[in-house]
């Protein structure tokens, strides 16, 4: 079963990047995920200042704005999609993620329309 781990940074630095995360921790974790053979996808997102929001109104008008900027305390900084047997396994991987220490990791089961 696939689960998405949404990694939220607890604090954001001046450039809108996640603060307090040691690159070495992330590299070690990423290696563990790869070696466990559970990795489906995973990316780290660029700083929030690079984000753009698009909305299309009912009449088809397209609005493009910069941001969203960090109004909330926690900012999505990256994600993994992993394939593991059950929620407990997914929660365990989430707990080992460095992002869970500085911020939080939200675990979302990926909808399965095949079964």
């Amino acid at each position: 079963m696939k689960y998405m781990l949404l990694i939220h940074a607890g604090a954001v630095d001046e450039q809108g990047g996640a603060a307090g995360c040691e690159p070495a921790d992330w590299m070690a974790y990423d290696k563990q995920v790869q070696e466990a053979g559970i990795l489906v996808a995973g990316e780290s997102l660029a700083d929030l200042v690079t984000a753009t929001t698009v909305r299309v109104a009912a009449d088809g008008t397209r609005t493009v704005t910069d941001g969203p900027f960090a109004e909330t305390r926690e900012v999505l900084g990256g994600f993994y999609v992993i394939d593991v047997p059950d929620l407990d396994a997914a929660l365990d991987w989430a707990a080992r993620c460095p992002g869970a220490r500085d911020g939080s990791v939200v675990v979302r089961p990926v909808a399965d329309f095949g079964a």
Binding site: M1, P85, D86, L87, D88, D92, P109
Partner: peptide, 14 residues
């Protein structure tokens, strides 16, 4: 069912 919460006794760590 949807999140597949397992039917098992947690290991010693958990």
């Amino acid at each position: 069912r949807a999140a597949r919460i397992p039917f098992r006794v947690p290991g010693p760590d958990e």
